[in-house]
């Protein structure tokens, strides 16, 4: 019983990473009906920029402490958001009227470019975050159920970000405009919404959050390499589909469910079988709910 509780804590932690990254996929799909495969790459770049920023500050200040994480986090979000807007402007906007296939290929291309750039600029070896930045203590809930300070931090930051995003999309004017654009570009334009600007905003927020997630993953696991984007990107993409792509609470739910299924599969059967178990369940869910758990069946546009 205690082990099950511990496994659920493990699963929710993994799931919150998937959820954070899944938000980026789902937001872009919501407004453009396009899978932004470059999102995993942007996430991975967040880990690298975070590492560079922290190393730079530690070298300058001569010491490191949790305080320096905040400015670095802001820099990471801004830099990756800029990357995102740039990719949208250069690789996606010119192809917006070119059908569904061309932008997907363009996105895959952007993903490969981001990965190769990281490998060539930072090298292919494993990078490790400087030690002593994150809380190392842990809270003992029960005799054999513990939650580490870092896990608490990860969960708190993830839920705060997701809640903030949810409120932004459902309670502000820009958020309302985003939802309008996700329903219909032309009608939104007729209603006086600057569609291009809304799309650019989406590419500011999604990658910004993804970049921050990359930095948090780097801090949490301590080490990573340039393939980070594929591993988490793929799982996050699946989380987004599982929850109902285009739906923000769905991305969070999908991430959590995938994280927990994987953890239980690895913990009670074997890590070798966890992907098989996870994807069998995923396929079953999609057979019964093809639009994902929270996805709605929207009438096709005429």
């Amino acid at each position: 019983m205690q082990q099950l509780l511990q496994q659920l804590i493990n699963g929710i932690t993994i799931g919150s990473f998937y959820a954070l990254v899944a938000l980026g996929y789902t937001m872009v799909y919501g407004v453009l009906k396009m899978i932004n495969f470059a999102h995993g790459g942007l996430f991975m770049w967040g880990a690298y920029i975070g590492l560079s920023g922290l190393s730079f500050l530690i070298a300058r200040l001569g010491h490191g402490g949790p305080v320096i994480m905040a400015p670095v986090a802001v820099i990471v979000m801004m830099t990756i958001a800029l990357f995102g807007v740039l990719i949208e402007r250069v690789a996606y906007r010119p192809l917006r009227s070119a059908g569904r296939l061309a932008p997907v290929i363009s996105a895959l291309g952007a993903a490969f470019i981001l990965e190769s750039l990281a490998r060539n600029l930072y090298g292919a070896s494993w990078k490790t975050y400087p030690p002593g930045l994150v809380p190392t203590g842990r809270i003992v809930l029960l005799e054999n159920v513990r939650i580490s300070g870092m896990q608490v931090l990860v969960l708190a930051v993830s839920f705060l970000l997701m809640a903030a995003l949810y409120l932004f999309v459902y309670r502000t004017r820009i958020g309302t405009a985003m939802r309008a654009v996700s329903l219909d570009h032309e009608v939104s334009r007729l209603m006086g919404i600057d569609v291009d600007r809304i799309i650019a905003t989406v590419f500011l927020i999604g990658p910004g959050l993804g970049g921050l997630a990359g930095m948090i993953v780097g801090l949490y696991y301590g080490s990573f390499d340039f393939t980070l984007g594929w591993v988490f990107g793929l799982k996050a993409f699946i989380s987004a589909i599982l929850g109902g792509i285009g739906n923000i609470p769905g991305a969070m739910l999908g991430g959590m469910i995938l994280g927990i299924i994987e953890t239980l599969g690895a913990g009670y059967v074997s890590p070798q079988w966890k992907d098989v178990i996870a994807y069998v369940i995923l396929i079953l869910i999609l057979i019964f709910r093809p639009t994902g758990l929270l996805g709605e069946r929207v009438a096709e546009k005429l």
Binding site: Q3, N10, P271
Partner: peptide, 20 residues
């Protein structure tokens, strides 16, 4: 006696089992 998947980053599920 078991194996991990080296592409993974998070080994807490199997570690929790080993711990028990």
């Amino acid at each position: 006696y078991d194996a991990i998947n080296p592409a993974d980053k998070d080994f807490t599920p199997i570690l929790t089992r080993i711990g028990g």
